[in-house]
Design a protein around this nucleic acid. Structure first.
Length: 270
DNA sequence: AAGTCCAGCAACCGCATCAAG
DNA sequence: TCTTGATGCGGTTGCTGGACT
């Protein structure tokens, strides 16, 4: 049944499901020309698809680094928590899940959570919990730096081994990490929270913050890495009370014990 | 076996943003 | 500065296949 021209040509452009032949043409184009300039795909390949359609097909289906298969529970946790922070910013969330597309995550959310679960209460709780932890850690670090005082003045490099190292790391990642969600509405307080969270994660938890396992070049899709990251997010978010936090790291270093542990395991994060 | 319902997924649409001219 | 085209993003729609009656 053909509704709304589904599977037909409209205005010179084909619409509807892609055929294997069309996929082949598009793949060939990307191999030769690289991503981008989608509007020239039709000219160069004879494909009767709009640039938009080509881009979408590539991003959501043909990209070689896409991770197939069901969303894992760990990924689901990440989706839940990031959605609690960012709302429907699917592309931002997707950047934290290598091999997953915004469309996939959006669909997953709609089918699994849209119908009232988890409750917005839980989302709020997760966010509040995180912000609380963040404040404590920031405070702890501030005190730590204060104690060190100016005695480190001669060694900016030495400072870089702690916070500075993270800072340089931070700078390096600036080009690849997801950009902080842009202000789109007037909920400035929330946006401030989100920006804080973003910066905070970047500094203090660069690995799990966005994993930043470059979907295009790394083996990010391996379930092992995903699971590991998920576990870290679990430790980040599932600290149901601050007692646990205190047990791990004496306040300031809370929860990040798992981070060190993962690094000890020789896992490469960047 | 046939019909219905619904979850999951693929794809389209409209709008926003950005860069080049 | 304005216009225009390309690209990105989020919302929505439509198809498919499996589960259920």
């Amino acid at each position: 049944m053909e509704q709304l021209g589904w599977g037909r040509e409209e205005g010179g452009w084909r619409k509807g499901p892609w055929t294997a032949q069309e996929d082949k043409l598009l793949l060939g184009y990307v191999r030769q020309q690289g991503e981008g300039r989608w509007n020239s795909v039709a000219k160069l390949t004879g494909l009767k698809r709009s640039g938009k359609s080509c881009r979408l097909r590539w991003v959501n289906y043909l990209r070689p680094d896409l991770k197939r298969g069901k969303i894992t529970p760990q990924e689901e946790n990440v989706i839940l928590e990031l959605h609690a922070l960012w709302g429907n910013r699917w592309s931002t969330i997707a950047r934290s899940l290598p091999g997953r597309t915004d469309n996939e995550i959006k669909n997953y959310w709609r089918t699994h959570f849209k119908k009232g679960k988890p409750s917005s209460k839980n989302i709020e709780r997760a966010r509040a919990r995180f912000l609380k932890q963040r404040r404590e850690i920031m405070q702890g670090q501030h005190e730590h730096q204060h104690q060190r005082g100016v005695q480190d003045d001669d060694g900016a490099a030495s400072a870089d081994n702690t916070g500075g190292g993270a800072a340089s790391h931070h700078a390096d990642e600036a080009t690849t990490r997801p950009a902080p969600p842009p202000a789109k509405d007037d909920d400035l307080a929330m946006m401030q929270d989100m920006a804080d969270i973003d910066d905070f994660l970047q500094y203090h938890h660069p690995m799990s913050a966005y994993f930043l396992l470059d979907g295009g070049t790394s083996d990010a899709g391996s379930s092992e890495e995903i699971n590991t990251c998920g576990a870290t997010w679990g430790s980040l978010w599932n600290l149901d009370d601050v007692d646990v936090v205190d047990d791990v790291g004496g306040g300031g270093a809370c929860g990040w014990g798992s981070f060190a542990l993962l690094q000890d395991q020789g896992l490469a994060f960047y």
